[in-house]
Nucleic acid binder design. Structure first.
Lengths: 155, 155
DNA sequence: TATATTTGCATCGTGCACGATATAAGCGTG
DNA sequence: CACGCTTATATCGTGCACGATGCAAATATA
């Protein structure tokens, strides 16, 4: 029954892919209050931890490439969340720094993860996508657990 | 230490988001041999399991919306992987069916998941992204395990 | 049988992702 | 200094994702 391997449910990748999208969707209403998208939220988190970092440092933290970051940062600059200035020591490097507006968003962003986690765990919100998210998350956990037991990295 | 909550590492969402992208990237070279993308691969898997289904049935399986599926299916039709015909019983419904070419891809696609899993588990491939993937996957598993223990759904 | 509502799909606009490529600054070596 | 090589960022093209909107076919309701 080699066929089984091609079922969607038997693959690690599909549930991860779905949960990722559904989680981003779950974040959306909260982030919309701040007027930002999920990737922009990630960039802000990097800067809230450590302000004034190079584009490269951000891409390393987020595992994204500059061809994604450059336009993203440009949009964020246009929104007055960050500003970008060339380093004087090395003209190749662009330093990304929070504006006051970008810094202030941190307070509003703080409660989001907890609020979201509560929404998922408790059954307060019975929205369609939230149910799918819970189901898919449980599926992912079980698949990962099996896969993980089958192949603990030899450290 | 409420601050901690905003660290990237302490959130469920970021590792899932990263693993999802890195896994898709890991699939890429294998799928490129078939000339398809990851979402196209997902559509084909649905059709390999069950040919001649409506657009709606595909979106339900993949948890995607028609505004993503419609152009995706159009591209796949242009690539001669599927064809789209309006149902005669209900003119609103579009039936998606595999072409011979689409059906034949199944054989080539069968070994991909196993090959990929081996690549990740064993250290045969020490590509940069693959290492990130392993790290992030392990992180994800540990985060999910903690979160899961803290909140097993009451069934 | 008219009208309203629902359903299934498509289109549009925007924002990622990412491979390929470009470009300019810095660096290394002769 | 000239040369090539590396590094940091940007640009371009393509393909998702997805909210908002549109539209026609089917169905429900008056």
């Amino acid at each position: 029954m080699k066929e089984e391997k091609l079922l969607l449910s038997s693959q690690i990748c599909f549930p991860i892919y779905s949960v990722s999208r559904l989680l981003t969707k779950a974040y959306k209403p909260h982030l919309e209050e701040l007027g930002i998208t999920y990737p922009q939220y990630l960039v802000l988190m990097v800067l809230w931890e450590n302000d004034k970092v190079s584009v490269n440092q951000i891409t390393e933290k987020l595992l994204l490439n500059t061809n994604t970051m450059s336009p993203l940062l440009k949009r964020m600059e246009k929104m007055d969340l960050v500003n970008r200035t060339r380093s004087k020591e090395d003209e190749r490097i662009v330093i990304v720094a929070l504006t006051d507006k970008g810094r202030e968003l941190k307070t509003k962003a703080l409660p989001i993860p907890d609020r979201l986690f509560d929404e998922i765990v408790t059954d307060e919100i019975e929205i369609d996508d939230m149910l799918k998210l819970k189901d898919t998350l449980c599926e992912l956990i079980s698949v990962l657990t099996v896969k993980n037991e089958a192949s603990v990295p030899s450290e």
